[in-house]
Design a protein around this nucleic acid. Structure first.
Lengths: 159, 159
DNA sequence: AAGTTTTAGTTGAAATGTCAACTAGAGGGC
DNA sequence: GCCCTCTAGTTGACATTTCAACTAAAACTT
C-alpha cells in the first residue's frame, strides 16, 4: 500500500509539474480521446474514468472552464448529456501524454524485470477479477466474518 | 492502477461500513497505537501515516472532536505537540482492526498464491526503493526526458 | 393514458485535502 | 546577547470529493 500510494503520488506530481494537469483531468481526457467522435455520455465517462457521477459532473464543469471539454445535449435522450473533448483539450492531452507515459515507464516499468512485470500483471488481473465478482453479488455478512482468534497484531496490514 | 484503486476503495468501504472509520483515521490510530506511550510528535506521526503536516493537523483536529486523540504540549520543545491516543481511540481501533485485517485477507491475500505474494512483495520493495532514491536526490530534467519517438499511443498507460 | 418506477444527470452543503502564509520557539555564528 | 536562519506546527482560503436531495425524462405496468 505504501509503494502504490507513493507511486501514484509520483505520477501525479510529474503530470502536474510538467504538464500542469492533475491525474483526474488526464484520466477524463484520455477516455474521451479514445471514444468515437471524442465524446461520451456522462455516465459512460464516469464508469470508464473511475469516478462517481457526481464527481464527474463537477470535474466536467471545471474542465469546461479550462476549455478542454464542452457539454452537448443528447438528441435521442433528453435527460442525457455528452461530454465532448475540444480541440484545445486534445492538444493539452497530446502534450501531457508523453510525460505521463515516460513517468510510468521511469518509475514502474523500468524498475521491474520481465518476470516481475508478468507476475504483476497476473496479480492485478486476479484481484480485479475478484473485486468485480463481489461487486456483482454484494457481499453477504459471512463473507467478511472470519475466525480471527489471536491471529493478527493491529499493525500487520497497515502498510 | 485500476486494480489497486478498486482494492483501496474496497478496504475503505469495508472499514467505513463495518467500523464507521475512514482509512485515514485508521492509519493515524494504528501509528499512535504502535508508539511508546501511544503518543507521537505531530511531524513524526505525519511521516509515518503518509500525510502532509497540514493534513495531519486538520485530521487530528477532527480526531480530537471524536475523542479518539488528544493533543499535548511537548515539555522539551515548546514549539512541539504530541498527538496522544485516548482510551476511546484505542477501543475504536481494537474494534476496527480485525475488520480491516479480514478485509485485506479476503480481498488480497486469499486471492493470491504463495508465489504471487512473494513476487508482489519483491515488486513493492523494488518500487519503494526506487522512489526513495529519487526523493533523496530530486530528479534532474534528463531523468524524465526520454526518447518518445512513436512509441506510445495515448491510452497505453492510462489504466 | 395515467401512474409508478428507473435512469441520467445536476446541484448545494458538508467533509476533506492542498497550498501558501503565518507564529513562535530552537539553533548557530559572532 | 543579538541576528539570522531553520524547524514545528497551525491556520485560513481555496479546490476537490462525498453525500443526499433534487429535476426531468424514459420505461414500464396495467
Amino acid at each position: 500500500m505504501l509503494a502504490t500510494n507513493l507511486l501514484f503520488e509520483q505520477f501525479d506530481r510529474d503530470l502536474r509539474r510538467r504538464a500542469s494537469m492533475p491525474t483526474t483531468y488526464y484520466e477524463v481526457l484520455v477516455r474521451l480521446s479514445e471514444a468515437p467522435g471524442r465524446r461520451l455520455r456522462m455516465s459512460d465517462l464516469a464508469d470508464r474514468s473511475q469516478s462517481s457521477r457526481s464527481r464527474l459532473s463537477h470535474t466536467v464543469t471545471r474542465l469546461e472552464r479550462t476549455g478542454w471539454v464542452r457539454r452537448e445535449t443528447c438528441p435521442t435522450d433528453l435527460r442525457g448529456a455528452f461530454a465532448v473533448l475540444t480541440d484545445a483539450g486534445f492538444d493539452a492531452l497530446v502534450a501531457a501524454a508523453p510525460i505521463h507515459v515516460e513517468s510510468v515507464r521511469t518509475h514502474l516499468f523500468d524498475q521491474l524485470d520481465r518476470h516481475q512485470l508478468e507476475e504483476l500483471r497476473s496479480v492485478s488481473e486476479r484481484i480485479l477479477e475478484h473485486l468485480i465478482t463481489i461487486q456483482d453479488r454484494p457481499p453477504s455478512e459471512s463473507d467478511l466474518l472470519g475466525d480471527l482468534t489471536g491471529r493478527h497484531p493491529i499493525s500487520d496490514t497497515a502498510t
